[in-house]
Write a protein that binds this DNA or RNA. Structure first.
Length: 780
RNA sequence: GCUGGAGUGGUGGAAUGGCAUACACGUCGGUCUCAAAAACCGAUGGGGUCACACCCGUGAGGGUUCAACUCCCUCCUCCAGCACCA
């Protein structure tokens, strides 16, 4: 017989809901704990990734509650976005209806897992009561010059028919549909995240409880690099080319300068030169080649001589000016000084085109380099040569000295360069937050007045799936009057990127029905920061960087008093089947719902926690789920075999387990926490448990398998819900062993084990060891 | 190329520098049963032995240490992120 999980789970879920047992109240007198899992996109069905993410969070939430914390554990939906729109096009429905149906169904599925959410705080980003605050935040940014519109070359996904932020382009493809991203010149809305680059970088140091790799990824993404901007004057022209370099120490080895084909100066300086035609045709040729092909490593470096010369400001040498496709307009100044001897790319280019080379750094104590004989650039450290007054210095030292020297002589400037670009937020799509701006022929760009928010997304829009924002075609929406001069005007018809919505939802959860602002500063002051955030690694840059940016913005507005929104971060691993990510196309999906039907939610929760540590990938295993189910039944049967008074040794085993489970949950080692409970259960099978010990076991199990634990807890007559039971304390006295097994090694090899009383003195121990028969034969 | 992480039984995975392989799956054996399933008990890294003893063993090779999966050095392989970033 197996336990009746279906009835049990339904029964307790209903009772918990009726008693509003997970409701979080603003109580400044109590220590708080804000536990948050990344809210889902309402696709309609939950998958194993959700189950894993939310089960991990639920264990911690329940554990912290039982420890006496006032826990905030909310849930909501990241409900704007393209899938709803695509579904609408396909099924000829409305995104709104489709989304709400999905939310309803997903809520139902999440509830079946027994997660301890305070559903009264639920928010959906597609509700105007939520997105009006997106608009409010946007206007605040507009006021401060942090939101601006500019024409530029932007990422364009041809299949989603919309622009994309840099962060949304993964290996040259759209993060959502994996189509190749193109470049387009468009006028778009940007957020000036670059104003916060220093703080976004520096404050990473505060995030001591974030995974290192996320810190590393963000550091890379922000991409600070320290160097010098050096000015190369053109010969016989009135122009100067600034180049950026991190290797000022190699300036005396710069034997030519290279511009990116798109460099604005190019067309101007080649005018009338014999090379003009060749240069123009080269530019045309590179334009056709996509960015992706250009940046692949094995492509030959192509280029062309401009016919112009410039002057190396360090040694006043006249050097040629080239154009090459390996120089990128979007990094640095779009121009480089080429040092073929000490940069591998320059080396290849110089070899290809027969350009001069000069060694300026010699390896210390090794065979000196000779430019003509080199087969690769020498990029390591060494001593300066051919470098005027800097000869003989170690290059790292020279790097600083040369930089200072150039600043003093006004031939260069010490500069810091950043990789981070401003965040492109306009999307040519319908299902998102309307950007609250009006265009007036008289007044230009006019903000929608705060009192007119929200700018509501019209319910009806034509979804043909053919080009352009659907909102453009909704006259009642697009046509309006200017708030300033009352003349006819039209609205912005682009909507905001959905990452805008999710950049502050954690603040909304603190006071989800607040009407005077995006959140109540007082309540947010109590609940924030999020003590523990849990979600997928795919947001390591995107969502996590944007949320950090928003938080700093709110701090500047005086709305919050902290710099960072998420104190501790856990990124959970993916759920695999047969070594591959579960996906429809591979047909290897295990549907959580079918597992719940067969074994119950508790078994699913237990398996997913036990099978692997949370940060690593988890291989789905049907036999493993069977094992989890068997374990629960094994626990279940203890109740029928309780004895009057358990052996003292069992009490010790229990206290050991209490310590182990507590420590392990604190450190997210759910798999070993469960293993220690299995050991305790094995001990109970060996010696028999009494009601008191069994009750404690149930408390320890309850964060993992809450329905199961609640049923046993109450059937033992323990009264009030196990969720209110209080986390057990272990008695340190019981953890002290009376005897210890001493392992005796001779020359590093285990030769004997002897059991001695706990406080045996060293001398006594030595004596015992030396007369141990097994040891004697090894110490001759 | 740079950055981060990983490599342990047949499998998922444990191990503050101190008994490598906890716990589970699988397999084998036993109890119960006419039988099977379930349940319960036990065995289970490799070599070796009737059985012990003993030897080998945490990707490879060195090193530190009385003692290394763990620390240091040099490699290899795999995963992830970024990448003609000047």
């Amino acid at each position: 017989m197996t336990y009746a999980f279906k009835e049990i789970e339904e029964k307790w879920r209903k009772i918990w809901e009726e008693k509003r047992i997970f409701q979080a109240r603003f109580r400044e007198d109590k220590p708080k704990y804000y536990l948050l899992e990344m809210f889902p996109y309402p696709s309609g069905k939950i998958h194993m990734g959700h189950v894993r993410n939310y089960t991990i969070g639920d264990v911690v939430a329940r554990y912290k509650t039982m420890q006496g914390y006032n826990v905030l554990h909310p849930m909501g939906f990241d409900a704007f976005g393209q899938p709803a729109e695509n579904a609408a096009i396909k099924n000829k429905t409305k995104p709104d209806g489709w989304t709400h149906k999905c939310i309803e169904w997903m809520e139902f599925e999440l509830k079946k897992m027994g997660f301890s959410y305070d559903w009264e705080r639920e928010v959906s980003t597609c509700d105007s009561e939520y997105y009006r605050w997106n608009q409010w935040i946007f206007l605040k940014m507009l006021e401060r010059g942090l939101a601006y519109k500019k024409a530029s070359n932007v990422n364009w996904c041809p299949s989603c028919e919309t622009t994309l932020a840099n962060e949304e382009v993964i290996e040259g493809a759209c993060w959502r549909c994996h189509q190749k991203v193109e470049q387009k010149d468009l006028e778009q809305w940007f957020l000036k995240i670059t104003d916060y680059k220093e703080r976004l970088l520096e404050d990473l140091a505060q995030l001591k409880e974030w995974p290192e790799r996320v810190i590393a990824m963000q550091t890379n993404w922000i991409g600070r690099s320290q160097g010098v901007e050096i000015y190369f004057r053109l010969k016989e022209k009135d122009a100067t080319i600034p180049v950026f370099t991190t290797r000022a120490d190699t300036i005396f080895g710069a034997t030519y300068v290279v511009l990116a084909p798109e460099h604005p100066l190019v067309k101007e300086i080649i005018k009338g030169l014999p090379q003009e035609k060749a240069v123009l045709s080269f530019i045309e040729k590179t334009e056709k080649v996509t960015k992706e092909i250009r940046s692949s490593a094995d492509v030959r470096k192509e280029g062309v001589f401009t016919g112009c010369y410039c002057v190396n400001p360090a040694n006043n040498e006249t050097i040629p000016l080239w154009i090459a496709d390996y120089v990128l307009m979007e990094y640095g100044t779009g121009a480089i000084m080429a040092v073929p001897t000490h940069d591998q790319r320059d080396f290849l280019f110089a070899k290809e085109h027969g350009l001069p080379m000069r060694v300026v750094i010699q390896p210390d104590g090794r065979q000196p380099l000779e430019a003509g004989a080199m087969t690769a650039a020498y990029e390591e450290d060494g001593l300066q040569v051919n470098s005027g007054q800097f000869n003989g210095l170690p290059n790292q030292e020279a790097k600083l000295k040369i930089a200072q020297w150039m600043e003093e002589g006004s031939i260069g400037r010490i500069r810091t360069h950043w990789r981070l670009r401003d965040w492109l937020i306009s999307r040519q799509r319908y299902w998102g937050t309307p950007i609250p701006v009006i265009y007036c022929t008289q007044c230009g760009i006019v903000a929608v007045p705060y009192e007119e928010l929200p700018v509501v997304l019209p319910e009806d829009a034509p979804f043909t799936g053919e080009g352009g924002s659907p909102l453009k075609k909704v006259k009642e929406f697009a046509e309006t009057t200017c708030p300033k001069c009352k003349a006819p005007a039209h609205r912005e018809t682009d909507t905001m990127a959905t990452f805008f919505d999710s950049s502050w939802y954690f603040l909304r959860f603190c006071s989800p029905r607040f009407e005077q602002g995006p959140f109540d500063a007082k309540e947010a002051g109590y609940w924030m920061a999020v003590d523990q955030y849990i979600g997928g690694i795919e947001h390591a840059i995107l969502h996590l960087l944007y949320s950090r940016f928003f938080t700093k913005f709110f701090k500047d507005l005086g709305m919050v008093g902290f710099d960072e929104p998420f104190t501790r971060l856990l990124t959970q691993g993916m759920v695999l089947k047969d070594g591959e990510v579960m996906s429809k196309s591979k047909g290897n999906i295990v549907d959580p719902d079918s597992i719940i039907k067969q074994y119950g939610a508790d078994t699913l929760r237990l398996f997913i926690l036990f099978a692997a540590p949370p940060e690593t990938e988890l291989e789905w295993d049907d036999r493993g789920i069977e094992g989890a189910f068997k374990f629960l039944n094994r626990v279940w049967r203890i109740r029928e075999n309780l004895i009057a008074k358990a052996d003292a040794s069992l009490s010790k085993a229990l206290h050991k387990a209490i310590k182990k489970v507590s420590d392990d949950i604190d450190n997210f080692k759910f798999n070993t926490a469960i293993a220690s409970l299995m050991e305790l259960v094995n001990a109970i099978y060996a010696s028999g448990a009494d009601k008191q010990i069994f009750s404690k076991l149930i408390i320890l199990l309850s964060p993992f398998v809450p329905h199961f634990a609640e049923e046993l807890w109450q059937s033992l007559g323990n009264g009030e819900s196990v969720t209110r039971a209080g986390w057990p304390q272990f008695d340190p006295a019981l953890l002290i062993e009376e005897t210890a097994v001493v392992v005796v090694q001779v020359n590093g090899k285990v030769r004997s084990k002897i059991e001695v009383p706990a406080h045996t003195s060293d001398d006594e121990l030595k004596r015992l060891v030396l007369c141990d028969a097994k040891i004697i034969q090894w110490i001759q």
